[in-house]
Write a protein that binds this DNA or RNA. Structure first.
Lengths: 227, 227
DNA sequence: CCTACATTACTGACCGGTCAGTTATTACGA
DNA sequence: TCGTAATAACTGACCGGTCAGTAATGTAGG
C-alpha cells in the first residue's frame, strides 16, 4: 500500500531506457535494494530490519526483493561484499602510485578513507559488521580478509616506507597500523551509534589533522616540530 | 526439561546459606541472570538472544527470569546499568587521589580501564551499546551520560593537568581525550567481533604501552625521548 | 498471447510474555 | 521433634504477534 502509492507516485519503478532495450528496471534494482538495505541494516541492525521495509524503501514489494536475493542473509552478504571492496582497490592504487614522503602518503590515505567511507553511508558498514560478527562468522571472515586485512596491509606498506626511509622510528609495524586506524574507524562507528547524544560533536577534519599530527610527531625519528 | 536436568545436576539452584537465613537463592539470582544475559547479549546481540537461553544459562527457567525482570528490555537496561558505572566511580577516585606527573596518571588510568573492563567480559558492553544504540535511544543516552561522558571527563582532567604543568603542548583537550581512548576502546570491541579472525592477535600490554608511549611522545612539550 | 517482471495474499516457525500448577522452605502448634 | 499449614521460589505449557519466505495472481512489453 505504501508500496502502491510509491509506484503510482514516482517514476522510480517505471520502465526506463537501458542498454538499448526497454526493461522494467531489472538492471537498476540490485543497487537500489542494496542501498536501502544498507541504510536499514546500519540503523536497526540485521534482526531489526524487516524485508518489507527494505523493499518499500527501494520502491518495490517484498516479493520483488526475492527475485534478486534469495534470502535475507544473501542480501546481507551482498551489502557487505559490494560496499567496501571497490574502495579498497582504489586505496591500493593510491599506494602504488605514490612517490614522496611516507608522511604525505599516510595523510592522504586516512583523508581518502574518511572522505570515501567514513563520511558517506558506507561508514555504517564497520558498525554493522561489529554488531553482527557473532551471528555471521562466515561473512565476518570475508569482511576481515577483504577489508580489514587489506586496509592494514595498505597502511603497513606506507609505514614501512617511512621506517625504511628513516622518517619514522623502528617500531612494530602492525601495532602502529592499528594505532593509525583506530581513531578514524571509531569516528565512523560513532556516527552511527552515539553521535546523536554528543552535544559537542567534533569536527572530523580538525580531528583527523590532529590525530595525524600527534601520531606522526610521536613516530618521528628526529626531534618533533614544536607545536 | 533441559531445565530440570540442570537443576537436578548442579547445586546452582539448591538452597544455600545466606545472610543467616535459608533462602532459595533469591538474593543471588539477579547477578546470575545479569551475567548470563551479558554473555549472550554480547555474543548474539539483543534481538538474537532468547530469554529461554538466558534463563537456562543462569540455571533457571524463563518464568523465573520474569520474577526478577519484567521484560527483555528491562533486563537489557539492568545489564548496562549494573555493569560499568561502579568501575567509573573507582576511576574518579583514582584521579582525585593522584599526585605526580600527568603522564603517570594517564598510564595508570588506561591500564586500569583495560584490566577492569577491557580484559574482562565487561568489555563486551561497549560493543553491545554500539550495536543496539539505534534500537534503544533512551538506554544509549543513559550509557553516554553515565559512562562515556564520565570517562571523557576523567581523562580530560588528567590531560588538563599535564597541559597546565607544562608537560604537554596546549592542544584541544576534548580531541586529545578521544585520541587517547579510541585505541583502547576499539581493542575491547575487537575482542568481541573480529578477534576470532585475527590470526596474529596482538598482545594488549605491549600495544597499550606503545600507544601511550607514542601518544605522550607526540604530546610532549619538550623534545621527545628518542626511541 | 506469452513471457518476464512485479504484487498481493498467505503460511508457519519462532519467541516474548503469561499463568496455573509444582516443589522447596519456613512457621508453628502439639 | 514431628506433622501440617502457609508461603516463597520456581516451572513449563501455552498464547499471540511478528516476519522470513512462498504461492497464487496480475500486468505490461514484444
Amino acid at each position: 500500500m505504501g508500496m502502491g502509492a510509491a509506484r503510482k507516485g514516482g517514476v522510480s519503478a517505471r520502465s526506463v531506457r537501458a542498454e538499448g532495450r526497454w526493461t522494467r528496471r531489472k538492471d537498476a534494482r540490485p543497487a537500489e535494494l542494496l542501498a536501502a538495505a544498507l541504510d536499514l541494516f546500519v540503523e536497526r541492525g540485521y534482526a531489526g530490519t524487516r524485508l518489507d521495509d527494505v523493499a518499500s524503501r527501494a520502491g518495490v514489494s517484498k516479493g520483488t526483493l526475492y527475485l534478486y536475493y534469495s534470502s535475507k542473509e544473501e542480501l546481507f552478504k551482498a551489502v557487505i561484499r559490494e560496499g567496501l571492496v571497490p574502495v579498497y582497490e582504489h586505496g591500493e592504487r593510491m599506494v602504488d602510485a605514490h612517490s614522496g614522503s611516507a608522511e604525505d602518503l599516510i595523510r592522504n590515505l586516512l583523508r581518502a578513507w574518511w572522505e570515501m567511507i567514513g563520511a558517506t553511508n558506507l561508514g555504517g558498514i564497520p558498525k554493522l559488521m561489529i554488531a553482527e560478527s557473532g551471528n555471521f562468522p562466515e561473512v565476518t571472515r570475508f569482511y576481515f580478509d577483504e577489508v580489514v586485512s587489506r586496509g592494514r596491509k595498505l597502511v603497513a606498506r606506507a609505514v614501512r616506507l617511512g621506517i625504511e626511509s628513516g622518517e619514522f622510528r623502528d617500531l612494530p609495524v602492525d601495532q602502529i597500523v592499528r594505532l593509525m586506524l583506530a581513531p578514524v574507524m571509531l569516528m565512523a562507528v560513532w556516527r552511527y551509534s552515539f553521535a546523536f547524544c554528543d552535544t559537542t560533536p567534533l569536527d572530523p577534519d580538525s580531528y583527523l589533522k590532529l590525530h595525524v599530527d600527534v601520531l606522526l610527531n610521536g613516530l618521528r625519528a628526529t626531534e618533533p616540530a614544536l607545536a
